[in-house]
Design a protein around this nucleic acid. Structure first.
Lengths: 201, 201
DNA sequence: TATTGTTATACTCTATAACTATA
DNA sequence: TATAGTTATAGAGTATAACAATA
């Protein structure tokens, strides 16, 4: 390949920077359009941030997905498994062992729902509530490191932009038809569904 | 195996007051601090964007990682496998079958490096070059949809912020010590390394 | 018949160890 | 000894199908 450079830019702006091109023999690597690929950079950023998260939460031996469950259940006690899994875009089938790990550690409890004997209402245990409070401190350290890297304003902008991408790419990997009650974290209208849509965390 | 709890209902309609912040609007489920967790939102956004990417590239039957390899090799012909895999934060061991898939399709060629008979110099074939040009059009469609969602300015801001996170969380999952020549797509200083650091795409 | 939780299973992605052939 | 590519394998993460109990 040589020089590909789209002349017309979609929906205005976004001038393609010099792409840091190197003399094509040695020197730095030219990332070409990857340098302005949202997906590519999102993946890298997500990996980097998760690495810091995992390192931060290593003392608690907790993965991001487990933390997410604790947060949702902590703030919405009594939700059914299917509601929590849908909220996190985790298939209910994959949610079972995830929840098991938390219940085995005595952090979450499955309780019989009085109205529907098929479902399990989820609650934090006292231990889970206590741990979640400590975890929140770890979470703040983690987010602070991000703010140190991006600046407080940069982090806020990033959060807003990421929320703006909610619903992009088609739904949230819900199982069958639980779309009903699952609004985005910050509220945004929904879009189309060009793809199959996988899970999230 | 559980006791009773007659209270809670499904359709949790009780939004607990927010803690740290509150772009809090309203809605059945309260996401609490997940709504301002960079990692959580990055993961969701990455999943959504990849879903659109995969749908867009379905006609070409190409995964994001495969596309990335084509772009890097296309703009940096002659690089060794280890250089390309390092540039993409893919372990050289996992890079082998990935490259195989591209070579089997006649898009990339492993060539003997004259100076070092251990290494393979990578080049696009004529077919690979032609395909990459078509793929670039697909890529533009994909990115345009993102710009439609975020606004052209929003997308540009996002790209800048994501580049600003480069190097966060500790390096880029390089194998041993190939750190040498692998600058970030848009240039930024490097940081510490609090964690192990996984692959990217 | 539809839904909730579950099991079993498979496929992708990522990670580690060890081998070979060169250097 | 060290490096480049490779193989084998293990572990997460994510996907679908099917079942029992309940609605």
């Amino acid at each position: 390949m040589t020089d590909r450079r789209p002349t017309r830019r979609a929906t205005a702006a976004a001038p393609i920077p010099p792409t840091t091109t190197g003399p094509e023999g040695d020197g730095p690597i030219d990332y070409g359009l990857l340098g302005e690929s949202v997906g590519f950079l999102l993946k890298r950023a997500q990996m980097a941030v998760f690495a810091d998260f995992i390192a931060t939460f290593a003392t608690a031996d907790l993965r991001p997905a487990q933390f997410s469950v604790l947060v949702i259940v902590g703030r919405n006690p009594g939700l059914k498994q299917s509601q929590v899994s849908a909220a996190l875009s985790i298939k209910r089938t994959n949610f079972v062992p995830l929840l098991d790990s938390l219940e085995d550690r005595g952090l979450v409890k499955r309780k019989m729902a009085a109205t529907d004997r098929r479902s399990h209402a989820l609650h934090l245990t006292a231990k889970g509530t206590a741990l979640l409070k400590e975890l929140t401190a770890l979470w703040e350290q983690h987010e602070r490191r991000i703010a140190d890297k991006l600046g407080a304003d940069g982090r806020s902008q990033l959060l807003a932009l990421l929320n703006g991408l909610d619903g992009f790419g088609g739904g949230d990997g819900l199982d069958e038809a639980d779309l009903a009650e699952m609004p985005p974290p910050a509220a945004k209208p929904r879009g189309r569904r060009p793809a199959k849509t996988p899970e999230s965390v």
